[in-house]
Design a binder for these strands. Structure first.
Length: 435
DNA sequence: AAGAGTGCCAACCGCCGATTA
DNA sequence: CTAATCGGCGGTTGGCACTCT
């Protein structure tokens, strides 16, 4: 018990992922979704364990990831969330669009703890160091596993075993640059409870800050992001009971307490499920056939895939949603389709051959530009999206970023201003504009 | 210029609860 | 009921790149 059987198997590769491996994994998940992770490496032709594939996808290949430096607001939010949640990185990450728990954890351990100490704040307790000096330093704020379990199962969040490292007042006091928005988020989080499965009594009102149409806005049980099972249940509940997911194909918006999320229009005749997305709730669909065309685009530093359905529903949606350019066609976000269906639906007798835009997948993956963009999951519209440069380029380049760097060097990609990038990090711009 | 020290981060490890046979 | 398996999580580590001396 405890250890995955796959870890015992021999001949499994470990260590850094090669571009070829990335391509295989990306190609497989692009077409079939991940399904059962333990079967992914075999089906994708990888000498990795499923766990490693899952990690690679979640932390690196997933196209909706936001890369690059954290903004000040993000850092502030992490600090504040850490004060409330402790080292529950996944829950913290769920509130930061496009950020992974690993990324946040690294940031915390490498930067934020230091910054807090420099400000005289104990990173473990979020109290002034002078108050905690006599009481030990930097103890983990993460409860032991049984405490975590009790916490996550608690219906009232912070009560009982949850040992929030600090009170709300204290954390809001000491987060140096916390803004009202973040404070409000934290307060609401605390007031709402912290149960990972649901906000108790969770009918939270959508607000109108970023809605395409107020009359399409309603209420539905809101759950924090990050729990696939819960979201799946939510999906089911919505599809069964929600007027917004009827056959009309109408879209609506929800504005969670942690950011506005717009529910895209839904294609008819598609299997719709929800998956976790850092930006918010988005439907994922099991696309019924390859007549659907995928076009990548990005919104607010996150990459999405637009689906041009073979039906006329898109026009209807466009009409419904007015001039919202992002909604003129149905869209879906990447990847994490229903685990139960995707594996079954995958027909491994057929080579991957879906469409991305007008480019069939085989073309997509033979185009190193596209591979590089995908495998490095850069949302090029963002100045925050950065790619590590590599110092050389050859046929054994260690990452697609290397290829991209080389393309820039050769003038095949738009060069970018590197003056403001720490560690010579290059920024990649407008990549999808070349597709 | 070279070695030591440091920081960053991708990936691994080990454990957990949930699910399944 | 039990054991096996799974996905998920947080802690830790190894290696690379950068900075300092």
């Amino acid at each position: 018990m405890g250890r995955h059987s796959c870890c015992y198997k021999q001949k499994l590769r470990k260590g850094l992922w090669s571009p070829e491996e990335d391509e295989k994994l990306l190609r497989y998940i692009t077409q079939y979704g991940h399904g059962c992770w333990s079967s992914v490496p075999k089906l994708a032709g990888l000498q990795r364990c499923g766990k490693s594939c899952r990690l690679r996808w979640i932390n690196y290949l997933r196209p909706d990831l936001k890369r690059g430096t954290f903004s000040q607001e993000e850092e502030d939010l992490i600090i504040e969330l850490h004060a409330v949640l402790g080292n529950r990185w996944s829950q913290i990450a769920a509130q930061l669009p496009g950020r992974t728990d690993n990324e946040i954890k690294n940031l915390w351990n490498s930067c934020l703890k230091k910054k807090l100490r420099q400000k005289g704040i104990d990173p473990a307790t979020h109290k002034p160091l002078s108050e905690v000096e006599h009481g030990g330093d930097d103890k983990s704020t993460t409860p032991k596993s049984h405490e975590r379990a009790a916490f996550s199962g608690s219906s009232n969040g912070l009560s009982q075993t949850q040992q929030a490292p600090n009170s709300e007042n204290t954390l809001l006091e000491h987060c140096s640059s916390s803004n009202a928005n973040n404070s409000s988020k934290i307060s609401n989080l605390m007031n709402s409870g912290l149960d990972k499965d649901c906000f108790p009594n969770g009918l939270l009102s959508s607000t109108s800050s970023c809605q395409p149409s107020d009359d399409l806005v309603g209420h539905f049980p809101l759950q924090p992001l990050g729990n696939y099972a819960s979201i799946s249940r939510l999906s089911e509940a919505i599809s069964n009971h929600s007027p917004w997911f009827g056959q009309s194909g109408k879209s609506f918006s929800i504005n969670t307490e942690f950011g506005c999320s717009t529910m895209p229009a839904i294609l008819p005749h598609s299997n719709i499920s929800f998956h976790h997305d850092p930006v918010g709730f988005r439907p994922a669909m099991t696309v019924p056939n390859d007549n659907y065309c995928f076009k990548p685009f990005a919104v607010d530093e996150s990459r999405y895939w637009e689906v041009n359905a073979p039906t006329s529903s898109g026009a209807g949606n466009a009409e419904l949603l007015g001039s919202g350019s992002y909604f003129e066609n149905s869209m879906l976000s990447w990847g994490l389709e229903n685990c139960n269906t995707m594996g079954k639906e995958a027909d491994m007798n057929n080579p991957p051959g879906g469409h991305i835009g007008d480019i069939k997948l085989p073309d997509y993956f033979h185009d190193p530009l596209l591979i590089g963009a995908a495998s490095q999951h850069q949302a090029p519209q963002s100045l925050y999206n950065e790619i590590k440069p590599d110092t050389h380029f050859d046929t054994n380049y260690s990452s697609s970023a290397m290829w991209l760097q080389n393309q820039q060097d050769q003038g095949l990609l738009p060069s970018s201003d590197t003056s403001s990038c720490p560690k010579n990090i290059q920024r990649l711009t407008a990549l999808f504009g070349h597709i």
